[in-house]
């Protein structure tokens, strides 16, 4: 098991957003999370990346690193948790004052303090992989949404994290730009990256995932293989959600 999360809870004021949930992620696995708006999907990803501070929960990693949020957590531990994973945002959040290339090298060069020549090579390879080598000297405002999101993916990959988190990476995109981003993610899935992927693209989730997890109201209602959860869901709430999203009327 690459990562097990046990008893994760998070509230905003009196709003209990995650209610004691357990999640397990295998090494090299693609885990998709689906669920209605407000069910806590983003909050779960943000807890894994330490952008939110859980109220409760135990994170255990394969390499023995573990954090129990019942205890006081140091800044170092937060940083260590965060550096395990890379995050791709719904709204890209590229650095607007840096070119595509500069966005990608920023982490390895400034945070990891790797050698300039090495980082340059890495960034060029990554931008090539996401199909943007010819655009590497453009600023974000000069790129389409799909291109910006691909730079966002390359920026996260450049840190060589053990786990990649995607929060609805295509939902801010025009329909004709979704494909190019999904292609990149599909390639990563094939390369055995460990990924947690929040999405409304049910068909795509079925295609690339090893495991699908359905969340509603701060609970994990159902999880299993894509066939189990997407084709023959056991829970009524899952059935209703899929009904609504697959046959919008």
């Amino acid at each position: 098991m690459f990562l097990s999360i046990n008893g994760l809870a998070k509230s905003f004021g009196t709003n209990e957003v995650l209610k004691n949930i357990d999640v397990e992620v295998e090494k090299g696995e693609v885990l998709s999370i689906i669920g209605p708006s407000g069910s806590g999907k983003t909050t779960l990803l943000r807890c894994i990346n330490a952008l939110e501070h859980p109220d409760k929960g135990i994170f255990t990693f394969q390499d023995g690193f573990n954090l129990n949020f019942d205890n006081k957590i140091s800044k170092q531990e937060i940083l260590r948790l965060r550096r395990k994973s890379g995050m791709v945002f719904q709204s890209y959040n590229l650095f607007p004052h840096k070119t595509a290339f500069e966005n990608v090298i920023e982490g390895p060069l400034i945070v990891q303090k790797r050698k300039k020549a090495e980082v340059k090579q890495l960034a060029e390879n990554l931008l090539e992989k996401v199909g943007l080598k010819d655009k590497m000297n453009l600023y974000p405002y000069q790129l389409s949404g799909g291109q910006q999101q691909r730079v966002g993916i390359a920026r996260a990959l450049a840190m060589e994290p053990e786990l990649m988190l995607f929060d609805e990476p295509t939902s801010a995109l025009d329909p004709e730009l979704i494909g190019e981003v999904l292609t990149v993610i599909r390639d990563l899935a094939k390369e055995d990256w460990t990924m947690v992927f929040v999405t409304h693209e049910i068909q795509f989730a079925g295609e690339v995932s090893d495991k699908v997890l359905f969340m509603d109201g701060g609970y994990i209602v159902e999880q299993g293989s894509p066939e189990e959860v997407l084709k023959s869901p056991k829970e009524k709430r899952t059935q209703q959600f899929l009904q609504r999203i697959l046959n919008p009327s």
Partner: peptide, 17 residues
């Protein structure tokens, strides 16, 4: 925007950096 801070944090930056 808050997203800029968060993007910086996700690539491992501290607040100062």
């Amino acid at each position: 925007s808050k997203g800029q801070w968060e993007a910086a944090f996700t690539i491992g930056m501290t607040k100062t950096t």
